[in-house]
Simulated scan of single mutants.
Amino acid sequence: MTEIRTPRLILRRWHDDDLAPMAEINADPQVMHWVDDGSVRDLDDTAEAIERWEEEWDEEGFGLFAVELLASGELAGFTGLSVPEFLPEVMPAVAISWRFGSSFWGQGYASEAAQATLEFALQDRGLDRVISISRAGDDASENIIRKLGMVPVLQTEHPVYGLPLSVHAIDLTEFEA
């Protein structure tokens, strides 16, 4: 079982009791504003997503981690790695992403989890490059991307929604743990 501990967080595989709190995060319009077309997701959508995330772990040896607060055991959201097949022009690639409940914003949790995930990708999983894809105007994500040391490599559009996307990348040779 893959688990990463940071000073304040546990990044781990998904448990059955994560479904309700993750569905609550996915149902928040404020959280989902920058995700795809901004649509919220319900309990069934979230269950299907967690199932896909777990399948990716089994198939790829990486995936999206459930992020739990060490102090309280609360599920704060997710961070992790996925293959961004929806965006063919970046393939082959592995992308880092995150989504946290709004009550966990502004406390550095996403940056802490993303940094640990990037180290996992480049040092543990042996990837030589990781990308991040964000919607243009998502300043909070852009801030995390900068903290990770990623640099812009491509401006494109979401193939389904036509929304502007920014792709950033970091290579193993540029990474400083």
Rank of each mutant, 00 (worst) to 15 (best):
M1I: 09
M1K: 05
E3W: 14
R5H: 14
T6V: 05
R8I: 03
I10C: 08
I10M: 13
R13H: 14
H15Y: 15
D16I: 08
L19F: 06
A20Y: 11
P21I: 12
A27I: 10
P29L: 13
H33V: 12
D36I: 07
S39G: 08
V40D: 11
V40R: 11
V40E: 12
D42Y: 11
D44K: 12
T46M: 02
A49V: 11
I50Y: 00
E54V: 12
E55C: 10
W57S: 00
G61K: 03
G63Q: 04
G63N: 02
G63F: 08
G63H: 04
F65W: 15
A66I: 05
A66C: 06
V67M: 02
L70R: 15
S72R: 11
G73F: 10
L75H: 03
A76K: 03
F86H: 14
F86C: 07
P88M: 04
E89R: 09
V90K: 02
P92R: 14
A95P: 00
A95G: 07
A95I: 02
W98M: 03
W98F: 11
R99P: 00
F100Y: 13
G101A: 05
S102H: 15
S102D: 12
W105C: 03
Q107C: 05
Q107W: 13
Q107T: 01
G108D: 05
A113K: 01
Q115F: 07
Q115L: 09
A116H: 05
E119V: 06
E119M: 09
Q123C: 08
R125Y: 07
G126M: 04
R129L: 07
V130L: 03
I133W: 02
I133Q: 02
R135C: 05
G137S: 05
D138E: 11
D138L: 08
D139C: 06
D139A: 11
E142L: 10
I145M: 05
L148M: 08
M150V: 02
V151Q: 14
V153G: 05
L154F: 09
T156R: 04
T156C: 10
P159F: 07
Y161E: 12
P164H: 06
S166G: 06
I170P: 00
D171G: 08
D171K: 04
T173M: 10
T173K: 15
F175A: 09
E176N: 15
E176T: 15
